[in-house]
Amino acid sequence: MDKSSNKKQDIQEMRHLFVILSRQFGLLQKESSQCCGVTTIQSHILYEIKQGHHMTLNELAQRLCLDNSTTSRHIHGLVEKEYVVRLPHPEDRRYVTLELSEKGKALEEEITEMMTTSIMDMFKHLPEEKMTSMRTEIKDLTEIMRKSDMCCYPPF
């Protein structure tokens, strides 16, 4: 087998592993959010709002790689459930920022705790040095994906 065939085979195997990994992690996230009465996307929204204070709808949509109307629809549901509040932007009152309410913070913490417990359970048999190595490799992978011209842009 030549070098090109080996590389193609390696790429195909990585794709297969990505499919399995995303499916398994997606199911884990679905279980953690649905038990709390929100969708997986809404769970992602709560997480992102917690990470970025005074985030606008546009910024949130970009982070989630979603269009503004989809993001707005999910935000509306979270506002109705009193998990998210819309506030005037601290520097420009023409804009609205998104913040978690106390109820939203508690829910996000509950989801985070469930996810943390599940991930800890998955990795309990992994030696510490392997855990450190894996964390570094996953971080590198996310950077490579971010730099790719074909990855991680919102669908339009």
Score class of each variant (00 low, 15 high):
V84K: 00
G77T: 10
M120S: 11
E129P: 02
L107I: 05
L98F: 03
M134I: 14
K139H: 10
S133P: 01
T132F: 15
E82A: 15
L141M: 11
M114I: 05
D140L: 14
I75T: 12
M131N: 07
V79S: 02
I111R: 00
H74G: 03
K130V: 09
K105E: 02
K81Q: 12
R93W: 12
E82Y: 15
S101L: 04
L100W: 04
T132A: 13
K124R: 15
E102Y: 04
M134C: 09
K130W: 07
T116R: 06
S118R: 07
I75Y: 14
I119Q: 06
R135A: 13
D140M: 13
E109I: 09
G104F: 07
V84G: 00
K105T: 06
L87R: 01
V84H: 03
R93K: 10
M131S: 06
S101W: 03
M131R: 11
H89E: 05
T117E: 03
L87Q: 00
K103F: 10
E129A: 08
E108R: 05
L78Y: 08
E110V: 09
R86P: 04
I119L: 11
H74L: 09
T97W: 06
P90D: 03
E82G: 14
H89R: 07
E99V: 09
T116K: 06
F123A: 08
T142Y: 10
E110K: 09
K103G: 02
E128S: 03
R94Y: 14
M122L: 11
R86S: 05
T142W: 10
E113R: 07
Y83P: 06
R73N: 10
T136Q: 09
S118E: 03
K103S: 06
V96I: 12
P127A: 08
F123N: 08
S101M: 05
M122P: 03
R86I: 15
E80M: 12
V96N: 02
K103N: 10
D140S: 08
M131T: 09
L126V: 15
E102V: 05
E128I: 10
L107W: 02
T132H: 06
R94A: 14
E102S: 02
L141E: 04
G77C: 11
K103T: 07
H125C: 15
K139E: 07
E113H: 06
F123H: 08
K103R: 11
L98G: 00
E110H: 07
Y83E: 08
Y83Q: 09
S118N: 03
L87I: 04
R93N: 13
A106W: 04
L100N: 00
E110G: 00
Y83A: 08
Y83G: 06
R93M: 13
M114N: 01
R135G: 09
I138E: 10
T142H: 05
V85M: 14
D92L: 10
M114H: 01
E91R: 15
K124V: 14
L98D: 00
D121A: 14
L107K: 01
P90L: 03
V85P: 00
E91N: 15
R135F: 15
L100M: 07
P127K: 08
M120E: 13
M122N: 04
S101V: 04
K130T: 08
R86V: 12
E137K: 14
R93F: 10
T136P: 01
E129V: 11
E82C: 15
V84T: 07
I111D: 00
T132P: 00
K81P: 04
G104V: 09
V96E: 00
D92C: 08
M120C: 13
